[in-house]
């Protein structure tokens, strides 16, 4: 491809991005005007779940490593973002004046700090442990998740077991809105998609399919696994930051082992190894539990039953390894092809 054909593509992308942002902003206004807070909350939770699932899928689905301590990374991101947000807000407001702009800047800086620290934790755990495989890796990640939670449980400046809700009794500012959640959903889905369909992504899949063969093909397996782990941890960090500012307070108990299991349920229900499957699984978990709210204490029984049924009739998850994409849809409509 020469420069002449590339330039309009760049322009197209720029226009496309601006269009997406504008659509997102319009949708944000629509959601805030059209839905009661309860429905808005479910939508936000679904968005955060999508981020968690798409991120975790990179490790568990694409790379085939079994991590069950993802709530730990989410906790790091949540606490880091909450703390940074609280400390940063006065400075940003002093610079920009109070308002939506200052809130947005504070929020996104806080989220980025959360993502960075979570990524750091990812490297820290990944480097020594990713030489392990299968069950052993699972146990190490499980241990890590618990260590993180217990650290926060004992960190006095972060509120210890009561949890952290900033300096005001009303809790953390609720920066998390439809716009920001889905802005980050789009960013993360695009990044994860691009990684998955790049050479790196193919190498990750090679590791999943046969690690020894991949190594024999000169794929630096440990380095790539750490890369996947780090990227995945960063996305969990973002999700944590969004969660903290939706909930306006976080406590170590929010990031229990159960939370990691929830995430694994999302990707397994959706289809291991499929980005759109993971996203679907995230929405599924958020919406199903709320829909069943009127069943009172029986809803968890029914939820578990539903998971069993799904696993029996579709062991590969709702989407399997397929992706929902424009290209696939186009292919479907451009029928009779090759014999």
């Amino acid at each position: 491809m020469d420069i002449a054909t590339q330039k309009p593509r760049w322009l197209l992308r720029l226009v496309l991005s601006a269009g997406v942002l504008a659509a997102l902003y319009a949708a944000n206004l629509g959601v805030q005007a059209g839905f009661i807070e309860y429905v808005q909350r479910i939508i936000l939770i679904a968005g955060i779940n999508v981020i968690l699932a798409v991120g975790l899928n990179l490790i568990n689905g694409t790379t085939g490593q079994f991590s069950i301590g993802h709530a730990g990374f989410m906790a790091v991101g949540a606490y880091a973002a909450a703390f940074t947000g609280v400390k940063l807000a006065p400075h940003v407001t002093a610079l920009l004046g109070a308002g939506t702009l200052a809130d947005g800047v504070t929020f996104n800086l806080a989220l980025l700090v959360g993502a960075l620290l979570a990524a750091g934790a990812g490297v820290l755990v990944g480097l020594p442990s990713l030489r392990l495989k299968g069950d052993y890796l699972a146990i190490v990640t499980l241990g890590f998740g618990e260590i993180i939670r217990i650290l926060f449980n004992n960190a006095q400046f972060l509120g210890a077991a009561t949890g952290y809700f900033g300096d005001s009794p009303a809790g953390l500012p609720t920066y998390t809105s439809f716009f920001w959640v889905f802005f980050w959903v789009i960013v993360i889905v695009v990044v994860v998609r691009n990684v998955t369909f790049s050479q790196t992504g193919r190498s990750l899949i090679a590791i999943r399919e046969d690690e020894i063969a991949a190594e024999a093909m000169a794929i630096p397996t440990t380095r790539l696994k750490v890369l996947a782990f780090t990227l995945s941890a960063a996305t969990a960090g973002i999700a944590g930051g969004l969660f903290a500012h939706m909930q306006s307070g976080i406590r170590p108990e929010d990031f229990k082992f159960d939370k990691s299991i929830d995430m694994i349920v999302m990707i397994i229900v959706g289809g291991l190894g499929s980005i759109s499957g993971a996203a679907l699984g995230g929405v599924f978990v958020a919406v199903t539990l709320e829909l069943m709210r009127d069943l009172q204490q029986y809803r968890l029984v029914l939820y578990a039953l539903l998971l069993i049924v799904i696993m029996l009739v579709r062991p590969e998850g709702l989407l399997g390894t397929r992706e929902i994409s424009l290209a696939a849809l186009r292919r479907r409509f451009r029928q009779p092809e090759r014999p």
Partner: peptide, 14 residues
């Protein structure tokens, strides 16, 4: 669960 508690309260109100 605290996220569920917040959802439940929102639902009760809304």
């Amino acid at each position: 669960d605290s996220a569920e508690a917040a959802s439940a309260v929102t639902r009760l109100i809304d």
